[in-house]
Design a protein around this nucleic acid. Sequence first.
DNA 1: TGCGATTGAAATGCCAGACATTGAGAACCC
DNA 2: GGGTTCTCAATGTCTGGCATTTCAATCGCA
Lengths: 244, 244
Amino acid sequence: MKIDPSSPADLSAQIAQAIRDAIVNGTLIVDERLPSEAELAEEFEVSRPTVREALKRLAAQSLIRTQRGATGGAFVNRLSFEAAQPQQITTSTLLLSMNAVSFETACEARYALERACAPLSAARRTPDHLATMRAEIHRQSQPGLTDEAFCASDVAFHRALVDGAGNPVLSYQLAGAVEAMQPLMNMITFTARDRARIITLHEGIANAVEAQDGPSAMTALTALEHETQTLALNVFAARARVAP
Amino acid sequence: MKIDPSSPADLSAQIAQAIRDAIVNGTLIVDERLPSEAELAEEFEVSRPTVREALKRLAAQSLIRTQRGATGGAFVNRLSFEAAQPQQITTSTLLLSMNAVSFETACEARYALERACAPLSAARRTPDHLATMRAEIHRQSQPGLTDEAFCASDVAFHRALVDGAGNPVLSYQLAGAVEAMQPLMNMITFTARDRARIITLHEGIANAVEAQDGPSAMTALTALEHETQTLALNVFAARARVAP
DNA sequence: TGCGATTGAAATGCCAGACATTGAGAACCC
DNA sequence: GGGTTCTCAATGTCTGGCATTTCAATCGCA
């Protein structure tokens, strides 16, 4: 592992990249302890603060964890889906908000991905997943629910659907798309009639998944997408008329 | 923005989180300049190295960029799909390798997601996307191609398919899944007959997309998934017999 | 001999101060 | 007016040090 002191890039960035490469290509394995900060500083011929900046970069990506004390140090982290999830959601949220991604585009992507899960979820869902879906539908029909709570329940419902596919890779990818859309969804106010229609569609999805009928689930998801798109269109149009 | 000096978490992690929150909730907007390191140090009542560690954490996630010189400083980055892509791929790759995700699971997820893109891509693909797909098919049929090059071309083919959907959110999510699988795919050696079958299936996909026939594209993708799974199964079984 | 308390060492977390380098604008000279 | 130099603020880096945490070895005592 070597770095180029004359490169225009920061030394800490180069060091971080060198260690990252070592982790990705398997030179450093999970739970292995890295040399101490002082040793790394000597190896790369830089000072300790520079090494520390590099290690913080890696810690920000959950690639390493640090432990204090005599047997402490920096250890290669086993990157878990749970640990990677929040970062992916933050990134996805910012991508949507900073790139002026339209509601339409985000919504289309989300439902396209969900339809991909539907057949698998229909085939493999456990009673647990079904119970969660039914519970969230019930919550959504409670009167007096705020729009935020309604959206949160909606997310929980869809996550149960996705998790039902029993494929962690799918769950991971989908969670980013679904959760990242929540800020956009929260911009919508739902009337009682809107909610009723959505709940009916949710019930259709739950029924299809319970009957292990993948195609029906996909059809119901398409209907829900159409409903959501129409709803958003109306809300945004109304808002444009009031405050142009 | 305040931090808790008595918290068990690192000060630099707390500071990074505080700034991250400010970016996500819109308190800090794109291209806005953060206070200088010295000012941040004073505001949070910590030293400058601590502030720097926090900033490096954010830089590692491409949330900020720094510029030297008199008018320099740290600026909120416009997070682009292009900048987020490499990080997502690194994370996905490590998730697969560190969590012993089976080839079967990863492959299933990948093709499920691609099938989600197929109808959109069939409807919207441009001549450019079609040309790329045809070009990659042609490359794959070259004799003497290494397995790595064949896989790389395979990835390029599928990326063209996904990009054809014209939805950046989908492209972003899919790129992670497709690219992260490359190391797994590279473990497979392809015989000439394997390649011929794959190329035939690729041609079927390209034809369906050209004819704007979404359902056929999905069917062809399913066939390709089945082919890939069978192939992998045989390769791994053979390997297990040779070196148990 | 056995066990608890003490101490030592190693590591990270944090700080103060300083110097080097960079880059943009201001001031200056021709 | 145009090019050149100067200035200065900001980041990048280093030195040295202290604080804190944690484990392990050692010591003391029963």
